[in-house]
């Protein structure tokens, strides 16, 4: 597709405003880490691949020594400072990474259409048995790194690096354009 303007969407894609994102690397099995994270988010440490949310806060498992804390953008610096203070005695890395990424919200008319739209671009198994609501999958969207999770059966959020946000947005528009309904999921 060289001309995106000729496409009509059946899945809507929008870039969300700046989302507070804190990268925390530490030994996640330490109780002090769980306590510090809970103090900010009100949430427990997520199981592998899980993402939990509560109001404006969330926490996502990124790897065995890394979580991503979601919070209002304006609160990031304060939360990073709190983490550094509470984890001072523990080897850790807490960073405000909000500006490094873009977040897209993808809304489809049906649960199947949402999974179809994503499965055109990502090698992930999007079957509901394999990727349910509340599970974050880090993978690639065509040729760029991305992480995706379903916030509800018809809505997904997709995280990508800021520099490629135009590419990712265009990809999702191409994938979600009318005529491309697959009807698989």
């Amino acid at each position: 597709m060289s001309d995106l303007s000729t496409l009509t969407p059946y899945v809507s894609v929008s870039e969300l405003p700046l989302q507070g994102m804190i990268t925390l690397r530490a030994d996640l099995s330490q109780k002090t880490v769980a306590t510090a994270v809970k103090a900010i988010t009100g949430l427990a440490m997520p199981a592998p691949r899980a993402i939990l949310e509560k109001g404006a806060y969330g926490i996502a498992w990124m790897s065995h020594d890394e979580v991503m804390i979601l919070c209002p953008y304006a609160e990031c610096a304060a939360h990073v400072a709190t983490l550094d203070k509470k984890l001072a005695k523990l080897h850790h890395l807490a960073l405000d990474m909000s500006d490094a990424r873009a977040v897209f919200e993808i809304t489809a008319p049906t649960a199947g259409a949402l999974r179809d739209c994503l499965a055109k671009l990502m090698p992930t198994d999007f079957h509901p048995d394999s990727l349910g609501v509340g599970e974050l999958r880090r993978s690639r969207v065509a040729q760029a790194a991305a992480a995706v999770w379903l916030t509800d059966p018809k809505t997904a959020q997709l995280f990508a690096f800021r520099s490629v946000k135009q590419y990712v947005h265009d990809l999702l528009r191409v994938s979600g354009a009318k005529g491309g309904e697959v009807g698989y999921f």
Binding site: M1, S2, D3, L4, K120, L121, A142, Q143, A144, V164, Y167, V168, D170, L171, V174, S175
Partner: peptide, 9 residues
């Protein structure tokens, strides 16, 4: 899909 605007990132 890799052509035109989305040929590569």
């Amino acid at each position: 899909e890799a052509r035109g605007a989305v040929f590569q990132p």
